[in-house]
Amino acid sequence: MDDLERRLIQCFAIVFPDVPDHEIRQADATSFRGWDSLATVTLINVVEEEFQLQIDVEEIGEFLSFPRFLEYLRSR
């Protein structure tokens, strides 16, 4: 696990404090309890704050899983 992934796990852990790290890495909005639209917005804001970036509103629909977030961050 590299630094980027560790920081992303931390972001998820802030928004979903009851979920253990190994489950966070599999997290998916469709199967994850408590991952609603407001959690998506909060998660995006926390990731923006942590990684000092701005995610476009149009892209929000793509950020519905941990792997997708990670892929996005790695591609930047």
Binding site: C11, I14, V15, P17, T42, N45, V46, E49, E50
Partner: peptide, 13 residues
Amino acid sequence: MRLSEALTIVRTP
């Protein structure tokens, strides 16, 4: 205050 700090405070029992 950062959002992540505030969330941590609020969500930490």
